[in-house]
């Protein structure tokens, strides 16, 4: 079967400590018939978007990325740019919407990058989940070889897939897209009330105790509602929920570790991929191997 070429924006973290996210994304897409091609010439998205009215510095790199995508889109005749990291998705999409709404800003940026072609505004930035849903979840169902039957999963969206409103991939207070996918994979989805609450984000650099408290709450409640595992799509959420359990455990006696996985890893496993070179469990602080042993 010939694979359909799709532009894929990996982002910095996927090229290093989140190989588990990158490889499981690319491999799960391959199973479904897509060749995820790394966007040629991409640069860092900047991770956070500028909120000041006069801010342009956080937009420029993203618009440059969109111009790269614009060029490549013509070659493959598909204007979709898929990101899987929540922050990358959020930044690229916001930048696109921002310059479409504020044409003056786009003009400033086009002038500043005078050796680049102008951005025409035709790139459709999509999160992997949205891409999958649009292509049809039934495709996924057809490829499930090892249904995750009995695995109790807490779906965790975090912030940047749902907020602010203009970039939300689903209802911001009661999203279901991840639940839908997990159910197709055969997993048992728990009603996880904190699925759209922040993990503490970049405070993990200078205020890791705060983030550890968030992790403590997010993991404890997941446990209280019966989850075995939490799944996410953001490498920062992943790092915070996974690694910061170390501090949480030191501070709260009785706290029990819970493994964190990317939804793409669950997809890969359900598709029958049991390859360390794709799953990279060595990149997890809390190993998911035991909880997932039945399907490995």
């Amino acid at each position: 079967m010939e694979l359909k070429k799709i532009m894929f924006y990996p982002g910095c973290t996927l090229k290093g400590v989140a190989k588990n996210l990158e490889d499981s994304t690319v491999e799960s897409a391959r199973v479904l018939g897509y060749d995820f091609i790394e966007l040629p010439g991409w640069t860092c998205c900047g991770a956070v978007y500028g909120l000041a009215q006069d801010s342009v510095k956080f937009t420029i790199a993203n618009v440059r990325n969109l111009i790269r995508a614009q060029e490549y889109a013509e070659k493959i005749r598909d204007n979709r740019l898929v990101a899987v990291c929540s922050m990358c998705y959020n930044n690229l999409r916001r930048a696109h919407l921002d310059v479409m709404k504020n044409r003056d800003k786009l003009q400033t940026l086009d002038l500043f990058m005078d050796e680049e072609p102008d951005y025409k505004g035709e790139i459709n930035v999509q999160h992997y989940l949205t891409f999958l849903k649009e292509e049809g979840f039934d495709k996924i169902a057809e490829n499930v070889k090892k249904p995750l039957k009995g695995l109790k999963v807490a779906p965790y969206y975090g912030c940047l897939l749902l907020r602010p409103d203009e970039v939300a991939i689903d209802d911001r207070e009661d999203p279901h897209i991840l639940e839908e996918l997990l159910e197709i994979l055969g997993a048992e989805v728990v009603d996880y009330p904190l699925k759209n609450e922040c993990c503490g984000s970049y405070h993990t650099v200078d205020k890791k105790e705060f983030v550890a408290e968030r992790t403590f709450k997010l993991v404890s409640v997941a446990k209280e509602v019966g989850a075995d595992i939490i799944t996410t799509s953001c490498p920062l959420c992943f790092f915070n929920l996974d690694k910061r359990q170390e501090i949480a455990k030191k501070k709260h006696s009785g706290f029990e570790h819970m493994p964190i996985v990317y939804f793409t890893q669950l997809m890969a496993i359900a598709f029958g991929i049991n390859d360390d070179k794709v799953l990279h469990f060595e990149q997890h602080y809390v190993s998911p191997r035991e909880v997932l042993s039945r399907w490995l």
Binding site: P193, L194, V221, E224, V225
Partner: peptide, 11 residues
């Protein structure tokens, strides 16, 4: 701002 179920209770 938020009400959610934990066990038998609503937080």
């Amino acid at each position: 701002s938020k009400v959610y179920k934990v066990g038998d209770k609503y937080r």
